[in-house]
Each structure stands twice: as C-alpha cells, then as structure tokens.
Design a protein around this nucleic acid. Structure first.
Length: 231
DNA sequence: ACCCAGGGTCATA
DNA sequence: TATGACCATGGG
C-alpha cells in the first residue's frame, strides 16, 4: 500500500473517532502487564485483573515474582487463561528484572529489543510490538486480528499474510512515526469493535467456525457489516 | 446455545 | 510452512 492510501484510511478513522490516547495505563510496566493479559481476551476483563493486581499491591516485577503462581492466577482470574498467563507474567518479569528494567533498554536498538522480547516464553509478535510501541515508544506498527480484518475488507491486504509481511507494509508506507503508530493501531481496534466485530462468515449459512464450507467464505465488506446473511 | 475477545505455544505432518 | 488442540473467563 502507498503512504497516501495508508494516511487516507488513518484520516478517515481519526475524523470519525478522534484521538484515542493509547495505551491505557498509568505506568510503562502496567502497559507491559496489560499486553500479556489481553492476549485473545476482551479488554474489560483485563481491566478487572489489573485492578485486582493493584489492590493486592502486586503490580511490580518484584511482587509478581514473589507470589506463588496459583495465587497470582487467582488475581488475574477475570482475564482468562489465568494459569497460563500467571506463568507468562512471571517469565516476563524474570527477564525484565534480569535485563535491568526500563532504563537499561535506552541504548538497545529496536531490533535487538524486539528479538529479546520474542525470546520470552509467552511473548509473541503482537505482544512484543504492543510493548515496544506503547511501553518503549519504539516505531513498530502493531498487527492484530482487527488490522487483518479491517484492511482485508478494504481490499488493501489479503488478510492471511504472515505477521511480518503486513507489519513491513505499514512501516514502509508510513515511515517510523511513534505517535502516528500509537493512534493508528488504537483507531483500528476501535473501528473494528464498532463495525467489524464478527469474524468472516460463510456466505451461505451465516455460521462461522462450524460451517463445513467456511473455507470458501465470503466475508462481508466493512460497509455492509451487520447486515444479516440470507440462509 | 453459540460466538467472540486488543494471542501464543506446542505437537504434528 | 501450516494446521489443530489447548488455554478459560465474561459479555453479547
């Protein structure tokens, strides 16, 4: 995609929804925790989990590492996958603490920091990029399910390309612009929740995952999303 | 009752 | 490289 196309969509979304001021969170560390907790999970349930962590005075690397896994899991219960995420949070904190915490990363290149994050078990490409962009202010464009869906339906990408392919397209079209990347990703998510909430559906029966012919699905365009499929 | 959410890992082919 | 099973709560 060209820079003009990418900016045209951004301006359209900005015009419709306004600035979002992402990522929600009081500290950089809270952003990192939120990035892990929000994996395949509605944000409202992450907020509850973070509130409980704060309430238990358990929102620091030391406190998270000091707590027994099962006891950490009960604090983040509302975020789902609590056993898995408790382990992931502790693994992330162990790495973060061993690496020397935030100020130590100041002179790391973005590429080096990204590679290090991806080495942590439980941190995949999107979680790493959330942390890089919103906690470390690095110019990395976050690709998530909404990005694939929205731009797929606009016909600007296929939607099922590998993560790195799509990320490179956005970064090459837009250049390195942290403030723009932050707002753009936020707007994509907000717009996705607004009009592209359902996953692509089979054009025949309106079923999603369980439809036998779902592979040849004909996802509705973002402008007609919400209209019922005929049976 | 089904679908979905601001994914990632691991085993398997 | 690419699927599939698995993780699990809470809201629509």
């Amino acid at each position: 995609m060209t820079r003009a196309q990418a900016l045209a969509v951004y301006n359209s979304l900005l015009d419709k929804y306004g600035l979002q001021y992402w990522w929600p969170g009081e500290t950089r560390f809270e952003v990192m925790v939120g990035a892990v907790l929000t994996q395949n999970t509605a944000w409202i349930n992450v907020e509850r989990a973070i509130a409980r962590l704060k309430q238990a005075d358990c929102l620091s690397p030391e406190a998270i590492l000091a707590r027994q896994p099962a006891r950490l899991a009960e604090l983040i219960r509302s975020a789902g996958y609590f056993n898995v995420k408790a382990r992931r949070l502790q693994q992330f904190c162990a790495w973060y603490q061993a690496a020397g915490e935030y100020r130590r990363f100041r002179y790391w290149s973005t590429a080096r920091l990204r590679a290090a994050l991806l080495m942590v078990n439980g941190v995949g490409p999107e979680t790493a990029d959330d942390i890089l962009l919103y906690a470390f202010d690095r110019p990395v464009f976050v690709i998530d399910a909404y990005t694939r869906r929205v731009f797929g339906r606009l016909g600007m990408i296929a939607g099922d390309e590998p993560y790195e392919v799509i990320r490179a397209q956005f970064e090459q079209a837009l250049g390195a612009d942290v403030a723009l990347f932050k707002e753009y990703h936020a707007l994509i998510v907000v717009h996705g929740k607004d009009v592209c909430r359902s996953k692509p559906r089979c054009g025949q029966c309106s079923l999603a995952s369980r439809c036998p012919t779902a592979q040849g699905n004909d996802p509705c365009d973002m402008h007609v999303e919400g209209r019922a499929h005929s049976a």
